[in-house]
Each structure stands twice: as C-alpha cells, then as structure tokens.
Design a protein around this nucleic acid. Structure first.
Length: 572
RNA sequence: AGGGAAGUAGCUCAAUCGGCAGAGCAGGUGCCUUUGGAGCACAAGGUUAAAGGUUCGAGUCCUUUCUUCCCUGCCA
C-alpha cells in the first residue's frame, strides 16, 4: 500500500542505494512466478512487497513469468496467475514479460561465455556430474571435458541447440571453481537438453537455460534495480553476480527475505499440488486451500489479504505466522462491509402460542450497524419460527444467558419471548419449544424498561429459504503439519475440514444473492455465496466465524462446550 | 575450521549517528451492548541466545561461544 510508511531492511538498502545514487534513484522491481502452479498466500507476500516497494518509491514493478522449464509449466497456470494478480488489485500495464522472450539473447550470452573460456560442454552423465560435484564437506573434481578448446565447445553447443544430442547426453557448464565451499559455484549447469515443446516457443528450442543462467540476465535486460527473492537463494547470489559480471552487463541487486509460513496449512507448490492430485481437496480453488483462488472462493477480500501482508512485514527470520492473524484481518474487513442477515444452521422449532395463527409482520432490521448507508430491510415474523438449537438449554449452567424453560429473551428486531414448555420426542430429544410473546415489545424494546440478557437470531419457518452451508475448519489438524519427520504432512489433513449442512434456513431477503456476495449471518459467521449456487439453491461458504467468547469462556471454565460440538449434517 | 544466514515479549516485526527496549496480534482484566460473537478501556508481558571487551552509556561496536535454518536437481 502506498500509505505504508514502515521501514524494513529492504527499504533501508534501497534508501542507501538512493543516497549513493547507485541506480540513479530508480526503483524497479519484478514479481517472477514460475507458471507451474497456483499463487498462494505466500506469493501474496512477495507480490505486496514487490509492487508495494515500487509504489512507495514511485517506481515500477514488472510481471515476469519464469518459464525456463517446459516440462513443468502450463498455459493454465499463466492464466490463473494473471487472474489472481488482477484480483489482488495490482497493475503492471503492458509490462508482462516471459523469461522465454529472452531465449535468443541468453543463447548469445552463453556463446560469449564459451568464447572467453568461461563455459564448456560437458558430456558426463547426470550421475557422474553428481559424483564429481563432491559433497558439503569435500571439494568436487573437475570434469575431464572441462578444458576443451573454445572451438570444440562452440561446435558442441551448437550441436546441442540443433538437437544433435539426446536429453542427458550433454550440458553447458560455467567454468568457475569445483572446490568452492558454495556448491552453486562448482561449475553450475547453464543449459540442459529438453525435448519438450514450450508453451510459448513451441519446438524452437531443444535446450533450455537453468534458473540461475536466466534470472539475473532477465533482471538485467529489464533494467530491474532490486531483485527480491526468498532466503534459499542467498547461496545463489554469488552465481547471480558471477554471470552478470562475466557477461559484463547491467547489474541489479539481489536481496533475499524470509518467505511466509502459515500455521495449520502448507505453502509449497509441491505439497499443494499433491493435495489437489491426491484428492484431499476439490481443486486449486477449494476454499480450504491457501491459494489466492481458494481464499477468493472462501470469501476473503483483496484488502484483507493485503493488510495481512503488510502486518506480517518483511525480515530475514524464518517463522510461522499464526492463521488467526489472517482471520483477524478478514473479520476486520467484513465487519465494516458485510450485510447482516439472520440464518439458522441447526434449527429448533419455536411456536409462539399467543401469536395469531395467520398473522405475518414485517420487522425492520438494520443491514449493517457499522455502515448506516446500508439501510434497512424487512424480515417476516410469524407464529412458527426456527432458532438456533445452541441457543436453548433445558438445564443451563450459571453463565448461559440464552433461552431456557421459563426464561425471557429477545428475538432480534422482533419481540421478547418466554419459554413456556419443552416438547420432546420418544428418545427425550427436544424437538419444539412452546413460547409466549409480549406484544408490547415489538421491535425488541420493552416499554416498562425491563431487560433481557440475550438476543437471539431467528427465521420464520414458512418464509425462510433453504440453502446449503459449507462449514470449513483448518485443512490440517496440526499447527505445524510439516514438522513431524516421521510422518507425511497428509497424515494431518483434518477429517472435519469440511462439514456440509443442508438445509440451513435463511431469511428470504438473500434469495436474489449472487455468487461472491458476502454476508454476516448474525451471531454466527461470515459467509459468501459460492459459484456452485443455482437458481433453486444457494450454496454458502463459511469464510470465518465470528469471535466466540462464549466458547472461549467455556474453555476457560474447563468445561468443554458440549452443546456447541459440531454436529453432523442432517440427512438429505 | 565445507559454504551461507538468522537469534529482541507467546507470534510477527520496530528501535535514527551508540542515548529511558516499542507496536500490532494472541493471552488477561474490566466496561458496554437489540449480534453474550460488534465496539471500547486498562493492565500485564523482556537477563535483547550466552559470556567477555570498548564506552559516561551497548539490542546497536569488537571477540568468543551456543542454538536454529538453508545448500550436494540436467527444478525454480
């Protein structure tokens, strides 16, 4: 956000560069996704950082797809990433680039390194290359092909390009230092042979540059000033610098920061793709996924995600941010903007005995107490209602202030009612409440000034519309599903991460809601209309529950909130 | 003595040139309420990983130690 004035170690570096005029005061960043998966909340941090810094300094931020490995990359991902970025609200105008746009230039740079004796074609097998590389504590050995004459290397590299080798038969390597403590400097591979068509260049190339040989030069070509990446590239910076220095082209500054980790989920593409392919979720945009597409479908807003990213900040310390911090921001946002509506998820029938059989009243309700301009609506009230089953206890504990036999409570925007009788089935389950209302309390206030301790939400049984609710819990039951070395993270997938309740009963006002509309079901949670909704039936995704101090109080008292246990969806 | 990096409140981050260690969230207490779930107020929370040194003064500078993380793809 442009109004974010907080400094961090990256802005300190940029300020120093500006003071020394290293980049003549320019600030130009880039967001470089590889199109091999969907964007997730961790990418959002990088996006906010790169675009945010450009904005802050009046600079630019490019979108660049890092598409150097056609074996893994697909057009589907390019499209999805573009859509997610737009949804988050960032602008790159016409500055969308592809590393593959630079394949010709990269090839020329490679030829140049061969010419000056700093690159060679190696015909060791992949296994041999691994052996020759040495280990973390032992130096590597030089390849027998390392000192071929320039002309031979030139000819061989041309043969690689022309398809004269099979995959794995030859690579182009930089000639650096096989005894370096930094393994990335032990003659890294620059080009490998891949007989795979590329989504953008088709069959033109048989050889593809490695990340290290493509990224820095792409930054250079685009005149990037600050190339911000994650911590695992710290070891690559000497190589980033080496290529630029030896090719002798404009030299941006690579800066590494700690990627985002979030509790109760995983944020690596490799793991997310497993969740999708192994069927733990319904797809990349499953509302339980930490992907941008999943969060969008879950009902998250771009501004909540952006504020979250601003709040977690940027540093070099690896840590895990608690999921509740993300939830805090979406509640904060939705509290100000979501329309309030009444809905009953787990119904208990209430009959108002002294209310006229066929009477229907339209009660005026406030759409959003946080936003007067949202106006009011009318909610039908009649003799037979549903309230939330959790809002009644036959034998309530001391601090339970809701409905109980003989007790009076308020029905929101309607009347005070008193529970007169409890009707049970043969098994002793409560199936219906017989209540009396006080006609003097219409609208919810008593002329005699008497007060009630609770206000309940309700719907009129004959007017309520039926809908489906998808209640989500965390995707993983463990806070850190990746930290058990003996178990696979999928062992910790939460079996209760999705509970479908069908039907729930919603006040008729929402009948015309459309996919993407967000509501607060009062006293329960925020919900968003899912794209699978039809004209006949709305489907609601629970974005996040309201903060629940009753449940918290129960925990504190050491009594599990028995009546609040998640119930199974009714049949049907 | 393989290379690289990081240690400040429960979590995520601040702390200008060396000058009284702060904030948000979580947790706590209380107030209020026609959402008991909104809102508000208050308090608490620290041997700045440790030891030593320089200094009138060290989270910050120097030395040593400890802990944790990353690196042996023809992935990015």
């Amino acid at each position: 956000m442009p109004d974010d004035n907080s400094s961090n170690f990256i802005t300190d570096i940029i300020d120093a560069h500006n003071d020394s005029a290293r980049f003549a005061g320019r600030v130009h960043t880039r967001f470089p996704p590889e199109p091999n998966g969907y964007l997730h909340i961790g990418h959002a941090k990088s996006i906010c950082l790169n675009f945010g810094i450009a904005e802050r300094y009046g600079g630019l931020c490019n979108l660049r797809f890092d598409d150097t490995n056609p074996a893994k990359e697909e057009q589907e991902y390019i499209d999805a990433i573009t859509e997610d970025l737009r949804w988050l609200g960032y602008q790159w105008h016409d500055r969308v680039y592809f590393a593959s746009d630079y394949f010709d230039q990269l090839y020329d740079m490679a030829v140049e390194l061969i010419r000056i004796g700093r690159a060679y074609v190696d015909e060791l097998t992949p296994e041999q290359i691994r052996e020759y590389r040495g280990s973390l504590t032992e130096p590597g050995r030089e390849s027998p092909y390392r000192n071929r004459p320039v002309e031979e290397n030139l000819a061989l590299f041309e043969k690689m390009r022309a398809g004269g080798f099979q995959e794995g038969e030859a690579v182009l390597r930089a000639k650096i230092d096989m005894s370096s403590g930094n393994i990335n400097m032990r003659d890294p591979v620059m080009y490998r042979i891949l007989d795979t068509p590329h989504p953008r260049t088709g069959d033109k190339w048989k050889i593809y540059p490695m990340y290290d040989f493509a990224h820095g030069q792409s930054d250079s070509i685009e005149a990037i000033t600050h190339s911000i990446c994650t911590l695992e590239y710290e070891d690559h910076r000497p190589l980033y610098d080496w290529y630029l220095d030896n090719i002798e082209i404009y030299h941006p500054q690579q800066i590494e920061f700690a990627r985002l980790n979030l509790s109760h989920t995983v944020l690596s593409k490799r793991k997310l793709i497993r969740l999708v392919e192994e069927g733990y979720v319904r797809g990349w945009d499953d509302p339980r996924m930490p992907t941008i597409a999943g969060l969008r479908r879950r009902g998250y807003t771009p501004s909540a995600i952006r504020r979250f990213c601003e709040e977690v900040g940027v540093g070099k310390v690896k840590g895990v941010v608690a999921l509740h911090k993300l939830e805090y921001h979406i509640r904060q946002d939705l509290n100000k903007t979501a329309l309030r509506v009444m809905a009953v998820i787990n119904p208990l029938k209430v009959v108002i005995e002294n209310y006229p059989d066929d009477q229907v009243e339209q009660m005026e309700a406030i759409n959003n107490p946080e936003d007067e301009s949202a106006g009011t609506r009318r909610v039908p009230f009649s003799k037979v209602l549903y309230i939330e089953r959790d809002d009644f206890m036959e034998d309530p504990p001391r601090k339970f202030f809701r409905l109980a036999p003989g007790r009076e409570v308020r029905l929101r925007y309607a009347y005070f009612i008193t529970c007169k009788d409890v009707i049970k089935d043969a098994d002793g389950n409560v199936v219906e409440l017989r209540c009396a209302y006080d006609p003097e309390t219409r609208g919810g206030a008593a002329p005699d000034g008497r007060r009630v301790k609770a206000t309940l939400h309700w719907v009129s049984a004959q007017h309520a519309i039926k809908a489906e609710a998808r209640l989500y819990e965390t995707l993983f039951s463990e806070e850190y599903p990746e930290n058990d070395r003996d178990k696979d993270f999928t062992d910790f997938v939460n079996p209760d991460s999705l509970t479908v309740v069908d039907p729930i009963y919603v006040e008729p006002h929402v009948k015309s809601a459309r996919a993407g509309d967000r509501f607060q079901f009062e006293r329960l949670a925020y919900f968003v209309v899912d794209e699978e909704s039809t004209a006949e039936k709305l489907v609601f995704n629970r974005t996040v529950t309201l903060r629940d101090q009753w449940r918290k109080a129960q925990k504190r008292a050491g009594k599990p909130a028995k009546r609040r246990r998640r119930r199974k969806a009714p049949q049907g």
